[in-house]
Design a binder for these strands. Sequence first.
DNA 1: CTGATGATAGTTCGGATCGAACGATGCGAG
DNA 2: CTCGCATCGTTCGATCCGAACTATCATCAG
Lengths: 176, 176
Amino acid sequence: MLRIVSSVRLTETSYIVLGLLEVCEPATPYDLKALARQSTMHFWYVPHTQIYTECGRLGEAGLLSETREQGGRRRRVYRLTDAGREALERWRSDPEARPAELRSPATLKMFFGADPVALAAGQLDEHRRQLAEYESIMGELEASDGPPGWRRALGLGIAQEREFIRFWERVADGDT
Amino acid sequence: MLRIVSSVRLTETSYIVLGLLEVCEPATPYDLKALARQSTMHFWYVPHTQIYTECGRLGEAGLLSETREQGGRRRRVYRLTDAGREALERWRSDPEARPAELRSPATLKMFFGADPVALAAGQLDEHRRQLAEYESIMGELEASDGPPGWRRALGLGIAQEREFIRFWERVADGDT
DNA sequence: CTGATGATAGTTCGGATCGAACGATGCGAG
DNA sequence: CTCGCATCGTTCGATCCGAACTATCATCAG
């Protein structure tokens, strides 16, 4: 059986697509986008255009199979192939992971001398909003007994948001 | 006086170059790369190739002036132009900032069902190493009475690293 | 002084990422 | 039926990124 196993580089984006597809197969890129919005987006943002692109890329690499809906929008519908499932499993079972990255534009400004108190106001709003959202999702996950991985990952997001809030509160209070 | 004021989009990368240049003007891209490594890299990673590219880009946009060393490597030496200084100041004095982003590949794996305890071991090593490094830099900054913005920004890095460590410790202990 | 060695300095290239903008279909209300 | 809004999907140009490679410089052994 012939299969295109080109040597595409698999990135985090790829595994998001593969992983989400495993959960809600079969799915259109639009479905994945909606699911990502409620789950992975919270700790790994991927713009929606990229999900479409990535599905195409993984399809060409033989990790997804693509069919089209008949009639209507003729939407592309994707499924994991065996190769796709294997790739996901290989990644998942390897405990190595690149170090985490934090990117905070506000911190960058502060680093370069912006007024910390003025920044803090906006950042506190934003992080409190974010925290509230995470906690509400966490409530749903606990109520519905969602997958433990989801709860744990969200737990990290919540912990980090709380830390952001503590940090900006200290800054707003003028502590060195 | 003629000046190219094309409408380049200024990104965080741009402001890192502008901001670092303000501190150690005049400088070659290599100097900036070295300085970034000790400072902004810790909370906003930029690959070195991009610093070269960005200097060129900002030069064309009229925000930097470029001269070449005579003889030797004929290295490019950059300075801020007035336009560059203004752009930096405009950015710095605007208290708006896009929300922070956290990207943790390990969390992503955990989300998709990887064994959390196996992941935790590696993550703890990494974050403890990182924390130690930040604390050592903080020591130097306090001893040398470095800029307050630098200390505050590093303070966030340290707080977040500690939170990461607490989180992965909980995971390693098998807490839900 | 010459050539090996390793650190320093700089560039190229292809592919991944991103966001703005646009184009298309579906569907309910008037 | 058709207007308007929500849904669905794509295109484009610019930016970002990492691997790999080249070139220069300093030093030291031979």
